[in-house]
């Protein structure tokens, strides 16, 4: 039995998970199986080189409601490695699976590789201050964020799609689900970003940032508080350990302090620019260029200067 199993309710992310799964297959010599939420994604994923595709049938409701059923299935299959897409629902599901399997679980894992005694992974500690190298004994579970690796190239091999019956956990009743309106922009793809923080006093003041973004042909991003507390920008615009990770050419951080939990999401940008009135704000240590000053004064001037 055994095997490397891959699951994400997000089919694109599931495809990306196949890349580390197939690498591990080479080292561990175990087959790679994909758990697909529906027939359509099963077919798409089958083309990316897994050895098995199991399509979940009878599944309804939220993905994490499948956790007990998947855990039972994976226990029965004696799964050695389980890779789950690191959405919040995926994290919930993975934690349940890990608990049932009695396994270790690395959240937001990177650099997966076989290691002495199990699966080697890297993950972030202290909000981004440090990176830790860990080894998970088998069976091992890991969640992996979107964008960590590209999906593998399609393979010609034929794979049978096996249906498996699963039953959702009925203990949680969901009354209503609202998909957050996608803001239209995928900031992970933006080459330039202007990020705003609590230095902005009102929602209207974000116009200053929008104008600058206009002059730079950039999109807007923000800190967690701006999205989660103030709701001034959609959730998928916030950067950081609990938000998105981006790597643009230019990241202009205006009126944000630059705490590590935020910076971990943007510190691989090519050029980081800071505008902050507090010379001691940590953002200046993280910036290539910075202006110490009031954003209400600096942003309009900068917008004007760039518009020329």
């Amino acid at each position: 039995m055994a095997g490397i199993f891959v699951y994400s309710e997000d089919a694109a992310l599931a495809g990306q998970l196949l890349t580390p799964a197939l690498e591990l297959k080479r080292a561990l010599g175990q087959p790679v199986a994909v758990l697909a939420p529906d027939p359509a994604s099963a077919a798409a994923l089958a083309a990316l080189g897994p050895d098995r595709v199991l399509v979940l049938e009878g599944a309804s409701g939220s993905p994490e409601a499948l956790a007990p059923a998947l855990a039972a299935l994976l226990a029965q299959e004696e799964a050695q490695v389980v890779l789950v897409g690191a959405t919040l629902r995926g994290k919930h599901l993975a934690a349940h699976v890990a608990a049932v399997l009695g396994a270790g679980l690395a959240s937001d894992a990177r650099a997966l590789a076989p290691a002495e005694g199990g699966l080697g992974v890297q993950r972030i500690l202290y909000g981004g201050l440090a990176v830790s190298d860990e080894v998970l004994a088998f069976p091992a579970v890991a969640t992996i964020q979107a964008g960590t690796s590209p999906a593998p190239a399609p393979s010609a091999a034929e794979v049978a799609i096996e249906p498996v019956q699963v039953q959702a956990d009925a203990r949680i009743r969901v009354h209503r689900v609202e998909k957050a309106a996608a803001g239209g922009v995928d900031i992970a793809a933006s080459r330039r970003l202007v990020a705003v923080g609590r230095g902005f006093r009102t929602r209207e003041d974000l116009d200053l940032a929008s104008s600058l973004a206009g002059a730079l042909h950039a999109d807007l991003a923000c800190t967690r508080g701006i999205a989660e507390d103030e709701h001034w920008l959609p959730i998928e615009r916030y950067i950081g350990i609990s938000g998105r990770t981006v790597k643009p050419d230019l990241y202009v951080a205006a009126g944000l302090s630059g705490q590590v939990q935020h910076m971990v999401g943007c510190r691989e940008s090519r050029v980081i620019v800071a505008v902050n009135s507090d010379e001691r704000a940590p953002i200046f240590e993280a910036a290539d260029y910075g202006i110490v000053g009031d954003l209400y004064q600096v942003l309009p001037l900068l917008t004007a200067a760039l518009a020329k």
Partner: peptide, 28 residues
């Protein structure tokens, strides 16, 4: 089930060119 082998701090290697003259226009 999970053992930590080592922890490495992350350092920002940035240029840190900070303009802080009183004259905002000059900084800009």
């Amino acid at each position: 089930r999970s053992t930590r082998l080592g922890v490495r701090g992350f350092v920002m290697n940035r240029r840190n060119i900070i303009f802080k003259e009183p004259d905002a226009a000059a900084n800009v």
